[in-house]
């Protein structure tokens, strides 16, 4: 059974059509990498999955929940799906610990001590337990992104979305974030990752997709995608990026 299924998803910004009918499925525990040129609608698409953006036509079903204007569904979706942003978007006025425990306490209604124990565990998992009481501004980019991953994981989501998690980072910090993501992938988390890190895609992705101009151009296994792509558009893209 697929945990995410999108059928002919379309989205307009004013007159501009950002998504021109995207159809795809993601199975439970699958790791999906999406790549494509800038402005091709990758972010728009994965933001539709947790309803940061509303699609205007087609349907998206996440874990059996139909995405609609139903307020109940929106609330449910947000706690099923965790998201990690390109620019971290940590809350600068809260400590790392508060950043992570905020949602469990207020949304999942956990007790503070319970939430903090869980947060500590997550910080251990992403490798920065000693930074718990610092403010985001005092951390390096790589550390911040790892906190952001921990923050998303604290809600115990079934699905994790990553929107170019490493493209705002200095090269030496990319690895530490990718390592955390690889570990996460191996633990069986369902992940959709927008990234241009082809090494990551080769290593852990179950499938790779290419977006172009609001459309899904190619969908393939990593091996096939890199060595023997189906479409010319992919070849062009790969030649530009590699």
């Amino acid at each position: 059974m697929s945990i995410i299924s999108a059928k002919d998803v379309k989205k307009w910004y004013g007159d501009f059509q950002a998504l021109k009918g995207v159809t795809m499925e993601v199975g439970e525990g699958e790791v999906l990498v999406i790549c494509g040129p800038s402005g091709s609608g990758k972010s728009t698409f994965i933001r539709c999955i947790n309803r940061l953006e509303q699609h205007q036509d087609g349907e998206i079903i996440v874990d059996g929940i139909q995405l609609s204007n139903d307020i109940k569904n929106i609330e449910a979706i947000r706690s099923e799906v965790g998201m990690v942003f390109q620019s971290f978007n940590l809350f600068p006025h809260l400590t790392v610990m508060q950043n992570i425990t905020l949602a469990p306490i207020w949304v999942r209604k956990k007790s503070k001590s319970e939430a903090e124990a869980k947060a500590m565990e997550l910080l251990n998992r992403v490798g920065i337990p000693e930074q718990a009481d610092k403010f985001p501004g005092q951390l390096s980019g790589g550390q911040q992104q790892r906190v952001a991953i921990a923050r998303a994981l604290a809600m115990e989501p079934k699905i994790m979305l990553f929107d170019e998690p490493t493209s705002a980072l200095d090269p030496e910090m990319i690895k530490e974030v990718l390592d955390v993501m690889k570990e996460l992938a191996k633990s069986g988390m369902t992940m959709i990752v927008v990234t241009h890190e082809m090494g990551f895609a080769k290593e852990v992705a179950d499938r790779v997709m290419l977006f172009d101009d609001g459309q899904l151009v190619e969908e393939n296994t990593p091996d096939e995608f890199f060595t023997n792509p189906k479409s010319d558009r992919t070849k062009l893209f790969l030649s530009q990026i590699l």
Binding site: D57, Q66, D70, I71, K72, N73, I74
Partner: peptide, 18 residues
């Protein structure tokens, strides 16, 4: 857009609430 496609009460619609 066709509202009836989804079956939920109209008062749970975000647009309606707004």
């Amino acid at each position: 857009m066709n509202k009836n496609k989804f079956n939920f009460a109209f008062w749970r619609d975000v647009r309606f609430l707004k």
